[in-house]
Amino acid sequence: MSSRNRKKVTALLAGLCALAPATPALAHHALGGSLPMRFETGLLSGLAHPIINFDHFAFVAAVGVFAAVTQASKLLPLWFVLGTVAGCLFTVAGLVIPLDVWLVHGALLALGLALALGKPRMPVFDTAAFAVAGMLHGSVYAEAIVGTVSSSLGGYLVGFTIIQMLVASGAMFAAYALWCGDRLYASARIIGGVVAGVGLTVLIQTGVSALFPALA
């Protein structure tokens, strides 16, 4: 990647990173804060959730880039998405993961650092780690659906499964198509640095919100 293109990528991603502090206001609802009560409204909420919540979007896209840069299995995004479905169902069933929001933001920071530092390939560990990370994300996703009816829950699961697979797989194949060889690794390091920045930003946000609820 040329110096000029690298600067463009960095500027674009840094600009997106700057949007992270605004995401809590939109964090879990595409329907103005109301619970979806039909399949189609659940589907809409599921499709929108990983997009309007930037830290989730950054993680899902980074999963695809990670799979490309480490030459991992192309099924890695699927394992992550299946994990989100499981995490959502666990939470709806009352099995809440403690500190899930903190863990999700910590996972985002860890993934960004893994990309930025050029983590070596560890196939079994990576698959397990992304499935667990998916469960954490699914637990947080479920906050938008707890208390609704089963038909809208089904729509929600279908929606966020579709959108996550599109984002993660799209990012993976885009990385393969746009970059090759050293350019893939160099670009992934830039993206990883920005993703780590998003993770650190939302972790700080979460800490400030916990210490000073009036500022949330």
Rank of each mutant, 00 (worst) to 15 (best):
M1L: 12
S3D: 15
R4S: 14
R6G: 07
K7C: 08
T10W: 07
L13Y: 06
A14N: 12
L16H: 05
C17I: 01
A20Q: 05
A20N: 03
P21L: 03
P21G: 07
P24Y: 02
A25F: 12
A30H: 00
G33C: 10
S45N: 11
I52T: 05
N53F: 08
H56E: 09
A58K: 01
F59Q: 03
L76V: 05
L76K: 01
L76G: 03
W79S: 11
F80L: 08
G83T: 03
T84E: 04
V85Q: 12
C88K: 03
C88F: 06
V92Q: 05
A93W: 06
A93Y: 09
A93R: 13
A93E: 12
A93L: 14
A93K: 07
L95P: 04
L95K: 06
D100K: 09
D100S: 14
D100N: 13
V104F: 04
V104L: 11
L111N: 06
L113Y: 06
L113T: 05
A116P: 07
G118A: 05
V132A: 13
H137F: 03
S139V: 04
Y141Q: 08
A142Y: 02
A142H: 01
A142K: 01
G147R: 01
S151A: 15
S151F: 11
S152K: 00
S152Q: 04
L153H: 01
G154Q: 12
V167A: 10
M172E: 10
F173P: 10
A175K: 00
L178M: 12
W179Y: 14
L184G: 11
Y185T: 12
S187F: 04
R189N: 05
I190A: 07
I191D: 09
G193N: 05
A196W: 00
G197C: 07
G197D: 07
G197Q: 03
G197L: 04
V198M: 12
G199F: 01
G199C: 07
L200I: 10
T201Y: 02
V202C: 06
G207R: 06
V208K: 01
A210W: 04
L211G: 09
A214E: 12
A214C: 08
L215W: 02
L215N: 02
